[in-house]
């Protein structure tokens, strides 16, 4: 559905997007991750036809984003980072405007369907300005969906809304995947993990990692970690003892306990319990620590930076 080849965007001598290539199939939710300024928004803007790429090409549903810009725009639903609203319109007028502008014939049915879907049907006659932030977010989503686009591009849709609404939005996005291809950008990695089928990690305009959340975890953090809290240590220093455990790769002192990283493929929990008991300490807590994309991300980004400095 989305094919991106060597896509590049330069603003003068500053390169925002640097020869990225990726693809997304029908019904897939593709996450784009990256810190601010990584090139997420620029990539999305090129795919929506907002601005032309400096170099490279991309197609959506077989249409080139430059040559067939109008066809591409007809097939894309886009929600920018800041939800664009007309405060003086009513909910229904707002959705109708976008439906008509995108050439929906007999828009009334689509409007009602989409308002029903985002649960705004009962507020259809309210002024947009009177909606709460979460409802505004949903209205933004309604605008994205009203012309039943093949591709939906959402730029950081969960920013600035309360946790309950974040959950709703995430659920809604997951739900979209039945009929649409979704391109979803975020800088919250756990969100990508929950929502996306596949993730691209962007840093300084380049793709630094790509894959399913599980693959990425596997690739970058092959081993598991455990967290232990120990009592009755006295003046002894447990780090050295803990490092000596078979299979432990690294020990990190945290507030109230220690994080132990295991060598790939080893379950170290039994060995840890045994060794603590041997030392005469009390095991207060032992639990596995799941590696999050946050960690992966930090790791990749810092590695990138280090490489760059080495160059």
């Amino acid at each position: 559905m989305i094919e991106v080849k060597e896509l590049t965007k330069r603003y003068g001598n500053k390169t925002a997007v640097d020869r990225i290539s990726f693809s997304a199939g029908a019904g897939e939710i593709l996450g784009i991750l990256g810190p601010n300024g990584a090139g997420k928004t620029s990539t999305m803007r090129m795919l929506t036809g907002f601005m032309p790429p400096t170099d490279g090409s991309a197609t959506l549903d077989g249409f080139d984003i430059v040559a067939d810009s109008m066809e591409v725009r007809r097939r894309v639903g886009y929600m920018p980072e800041r939800v664009p609203l007309y405060p003086d319109m009513t909910v229904e007028e707002y959705v109708r405007f976008w439906a008509k502008l995108r050439g929906v014939r007999r828009p009334q049915k689509s409007i009602e369907a989409v308002l029903d879907r985002v649960q705004l049907l009962d507020r259809r006659r309210s002024l947009v300005r009177s909606l709460s932030k979460g409802l505004k977010q949903r209205l933004g989503l309604a605008q994205t969906l009203v012309h039943n686009p093949k591709v939906i591009i959402l730029d950081e849709p969960t920013i600035g809304i309360d946790p309950q609404q974040v959950i709703e939005v995430r659920a809604a996005v997951r739900d979209l995947a039945h009929n649409h291809t979704v391109l979803f950008s975020t800088h919250i990695l756990s969100e990508a993990e929950q929502v996306c089928d596949r993730v691209i990690i962007l840093n300084q305009g380049r793709i630094v990692a790509e894959g399913t959340p599980a693959e990425l975890r596997q690739k970058l953090y092959p081993g598991d970690s455990v967290f232990v809290q120990i009592g009755g240590v006295g003046h002894a220093k447990p780090e050295k003892t803990l490092r000596g455990i078979n299979g432990v790769k690294q020990v990190q002192k945290l507030a109230g306990g220690y994080a132990l990283e295991a060598v790939a493929g080893r379950d170290i929990r039994a060995d840890v319990v045994k060794r603590i008991q041997q030392a005469g300490w009390t095991l207060l807590e032992l639990r596995p620590v799941a590696v999050t994309l946050e960690d992966i991300f930090l790791k990749i980004v810092s590695r990138e930076d280090a490489e760059e400095q080495a160059e």
């Binding site: 920018p80 664009p84 995108r102 605008q143």
Partner: peptide, 9 residues
């Protein structure tokens, strides 16, 4: 909304 207008067909 300009951004959205400019991505409309």
């Amino acid at each position: 909304t300009m951004e959205l207008l400019l991505t409309a067909p």
